[in-house]
Simulated assay, not measured.
Amino acid sequence: MNLAFLIQTFWLAFKAIPMTLLITSISLLIGLPFGLLLAWIKIRKIRILYPLAAIYTSLMRATPMVLFILLFYSTLPSLLNVIFNQKLHLGLKIFEINPVVYAIIVFTLIAVANLSEVFRSAILTIDPGQKEAGLMVGLTVIQIYYRIIIPQALVSAIPNIGNLTLNILKGTSLAFMMTVQEVTAVAKTAASHTYNYTEAYIDIFIIYFILGALLQIIFKYLEKHLSRHKVSSTIA
């Protein structure tokens, strides 16, 4: 065990944490509204859109993350190059796009599919009588969802959103396959020069363990805080 290398590489990988958090946070922030929209489409069973939403959700949830990343990163740039440069002759530098952009797109697509199921199940737990009460006082369907149903659904969905956030965070370790310089990529690159892969993997484990533990604490606090608010609102 090369202790000096382990410590040195730990701090190198530690500096890459902002990239890991950037991919995770942006993917989830973009995915939240689209996931909610997809959930609404599936609940309302909107014609044409419903089967497309169901197929998309099933496909994304059934495909292994590593396989989706490999397929996406190996085909999308080439496809965009054919469309914009060979067909439309726009002369765009497709292959010079920062791989972080592709990583964010990949994890956003994954987040949207999973969030749609999280929101769908949370919304279905809301008492239908609240919608009827909203209609009786003159609220539109959109107002009912915006003011009554969605806020309550978000409270119910917090535990599952926390689990998804943790899964996305861990999934970003696969972004090294897209040459993104996140925690795993930095540690493995450092190990490739000295072949101290065991130490590098220990560093990766420690960093993801710390990040995962902090995320669980944050979402536990949110769940507890919002649950109190929900109870107090109900009593009032």
Rank of each mutant, 00 (worst) to 15 (best):
I149P: 03
I126Y: 04
T125Y: 06
K131Q: 13
T172G: 10
M177N: 07
K87D: 10
E96L: 05
K131C: 03
A133W: 14
T75K: 10
N81Q: 08
V137T: 13
N98Q: 13
Q152T: 02
K93A: 15
S156C: 06
I110P: 07
I105R: 00
V141L: 01
G134F: 10
P151T: 10
S173Q: 07
G129P: 02
G134P: 04
P128Y: 14
T179F: 00
D127M: 10
L135F: 15
L115P: 01
I150R: 03
I142G: 00
V141N: 03
T179R: 01
F68T: 05
T165V: 05
I126G: 01
D127W: 12
F176R: 04
V183N: 03
E182C: 14
L166S: 13
P64Y: 11
L164W: 03
S173L: 08
T140N: 10
V100W: 15
S121G: 11
V155D: 13
L79D: 01
N167A: 15
P64N: 04
N167F: 12
S74V: 08
N160C: 05
L90S: 14
I168Y: 07
I94N: 11
N81W: 09
N114R: 08
Q181G: 13
Y73A: 04
V66P: 00
T108Q: 08
L124I: 15
V137E: 11
G129C: 04
A175C: 12
T108C: 07
I69C: 06
H89L: 15
M178H: 09
T165I: 04
A111S: 15
I158S: 06
P64C: 11
T179S: 15
P151M: 03
L79N: 10
N81T: 11
V112Q: 05
Q86N: 12
T165G: 01
L164K: 02
I150V: 15
K131T: 14
S156P: 02
F72W: 06
I110G: 09
E117N: 01
E132V: 03
